[in-house]
Write a protein that binds this DNA or RNA. Structure first.
Lengths: 141, 141
DNA sequence: TATAAAATTGTAATAATTACAATTATGGGA
DNA sequence: TCCCATAATTGTAATTATTACAATTTTATA
């Protein structure tokens, strides 16, 4: 069964100077379609059916590449695995310590973008605001 | 003033309802004396000489306990290991992607403490602001 | 088409973390 | 004090995420 490439995925890769191979487009497409902050394994398992030859190493390499090139965000909010976010616009994340889900939150309004600026002499390239606790669904359940 | 370090460690544990066993006091003392955001292994190696029977499992369990009880912070800024901070006062962290060191930074002034409050219906118990990039020392070196 | 470079794959190795059963320490009655 | 229950610690083995790396396949190009 053929894979339907999203033009958005291809465009995203091109705009970040990443050569759009079949695997890379599929992985970027997965990130764009799945806003659940998937782990490497989530991506691998989610694509294995449609790309049976896909290797875990390729998923690792590719997601690392996306993160390095700014085509995706690598989240280190969860202590036991890394998660990825196809949405690179400024926003923050909440991890539910009960169910493990990661939610998107808006940036606190007074906080401005400071990428490329320096803090205490350090050159900043990434900003991550993480909140942890118990999510609304778990509180109500 | 006047607190010997281990006294400060004992007081910290008591104030967080943690029974101050010999190992726990030693580990908390290590965190108080070593403001370098040590990993589990750093703590283990740092204490092994003075406590030869210390087990890595104890260090894991104890640091997890400290984090759960709010006696220390567990940082997930580094993708490959967890780090701990004995300073639980509000501040943020910077990870140098070149040398791997973690620096303390002040909280951006407009950002207020929101522990115990809720965001989008979620109950917040931890806030972590992480910045990544290249540190001053690496830039100058 | 021939060739070099880049990308992908599969396997094996590494490192962090957890599981767990056994042992040791601690504190409170009798 | 001794006994007991409980909590804490230990050591080993297992698990999991991640990385290393050599072989293979794909892509671009001359």
């Amino acid at each position: 069964m053929g894979f339907k490439h999203s033009d958005e995925a291809v465009e995203r890769l091109k705009s970040k100077s990443i050569k759009p191979s079949m695997q890379r487009v599929a992985i970027m497409d997965y990130l764009i379609l799945n806003r659940t902050h998937p782990s490497v394994d989530d991506v691998y398992k989610g694509l294995s059916a449609s790309i049976p030859t896909l290797s875990r190493t390729t998923v690792y390499n590719t997601l690392k590449l996306f993160s390095d090139k700014g085509a995706a965000l690598m989240l280190t909010i969860d202590e036991s695995r890394v998660n990825f976010d196809g949405d690179t616009s400024p926003h923050t994340h909440f991890l539910c310590k009960n169910c493990g889900k990661i939610y998107d939150l808006q940036v606190p309004s007074p906080v401005k973008e400071v990428i490329g600026m320096s803090l205490a002499g350090h050159q900043i390239s990434e900003i991550h605001y993480y909140y942890k606790g118990v999510c609304k669904a778990c509180l109500e359940g």
